[in-house]
Design a binder for these strands. Structure first.
Length: 220
DNA sequence: CATCAGATCTGCT
DNA sequence: GCAGATCTGATGG
């Protein structure tokens, strides 16, 4: 039993949404009608203009990050390193550039299409399921998310390209959620160590170099 | 395992 | 020009 997340669900602070998204499903409906569905297992919170690691630090506003300033439930997709797309869900108060980065998903439906979206893999054979949506760039590729979806409203009417499904049945136990510092940040002072990354403890779908280090204990 | 170069877009200096 | 909310394949211990 699931329901679709509405604007109300996204209208909260970034850390709360980052936690609350764990266990929810990200649903991508393609133009063809095919559906890709995956459980969110890892997120990062970018808490607003005071967050030195955020694209919106100090109130910075550019063509790229414009949708961060849109209403809660807006999808913010950016392109980085000349190669990768990353997907965020805008939250917080209306007009505040607050968002949650999606870092890893556990594939549920449309797995073969995800694999195909990722490319044919390498000489070592097809990409294993646990790698399909591991990391913010990889999950965008698998789920066919790019800048053309930047700014869409996840809380809008039915049939939109991307939405979030919340399950009442199996919410993630608080004790099964781990948190730690965010990944890949440059010199952002004390913000580097803030525990704003959240993940499902022990999930083999979570990103990070070694699952032992990144997947260890430490509850919320 | 750990480290590193390279892919080459976007925004700031 | 250079660094960045990344990822992959290559190389060396």
């Amino acid at each position: 039993m699931t329901r679709r997340a509405t604007r109300r669900f996204f209208s909260t602070d970034a850390a709360s949404l980052a936690r609350g998204l764990l266990g929810a499903a990200l649903v991508r409906t393609l133009d063809s009608g095919e559906v890709l569905r995956a459980t969110i297992v890892e997120t990062e919170a970018y808490v607003g203009v005071r967050d030195r690691a955020s694209h919106a630090f100090g109130g910075r506003r550019t063509p790229r990050n414009e949708s961060m300033y849109a209403r809660p439930g807006t999808l913010y997709v950016y392109f980085t390193y000349g190669m990768h797309h990353c997907a965020n869900i805008v939250c917080g108060a209306p007009g505040e550039p607050v968002a949650v980065l999606l870092r890893a998903l556990e594939p549920i439906d449309g797995i073969e299409l995800m694999r195909s979206n990722r490319g044919s893999g390498s000489a070592r054979g097809p990409i294993p399921d646990r790698m399909l949506c591991r990391g913010p760039g990889n999950l965008c590729r698998a789920m066919a998310i790019d800048r053309s979806l930047d700014g869409i409203d996840l809380g809008g009417g039915a049939g939109s390209a991307v939405s979030v499904e919340i399950s009442r049945r199996s919410p993630i136990e608080r004790a099964s959620i781990a948190r730690g510092p965010r990944i890949g940040l440059g010199d952002v002072g004390s913000w580097k160590d803030r525990p704003l990354r959240f993940w499902v403890r022990g999930s083999p779908f979570v990103s990070g170099r070694t699952s032992r280090v990144t997947n260890g204990p430490r509850s919320v």
